[in-house]
Amino acid sequence: MILKFDDKIPIYLQIQNYLNRQIISGKILPGAQLPSVRQLAVEVTANVNTVQRALSQMIDEKIIVPQRGRGNFVTVDVELIEQLKMKLIDEQFALVYRQLHDLNFSDAEIIDKFVEYVKNRGALDE
């Protein structure tokens, strides 16, 4: 299984996040056709109704576009995908920021530490 569910979080949201991340990371390209609902259900080991709910949510957000009789396609609006990317970055930063803030680090410290961390990571990767 590619996706391991956290049973405390609604499954449809986790499927939505999983697909959003695949789109953001370019694993599924703009304009590409998504697998059928049932194929996706088998891929993530979930109920067809739950997958459909995740897809409906993504259709509402215009990230995917249904085409009658042909299935679901990723939007070709790269601006929209960019916004999705920004939203994800925001969420990740918000999480880290809140946790560090709770530990009484100042904004300046958080920025310094983060810059330092990225530098050290870079050194590790070389």
Binding site: D6, D7, K8, I9, P10, I11, Y12, R53
Partner: peptide, 14 residues
């Protein structure tokens, strides 16, 4: 509804 339990209560089903 299973996802409603997760959504409303923040609990896993078990």
């Amino acid at each position: 509804d299973a996802d409603k339990i997760r959504e409303d209560k923040g609990m896993d089903i078990e």
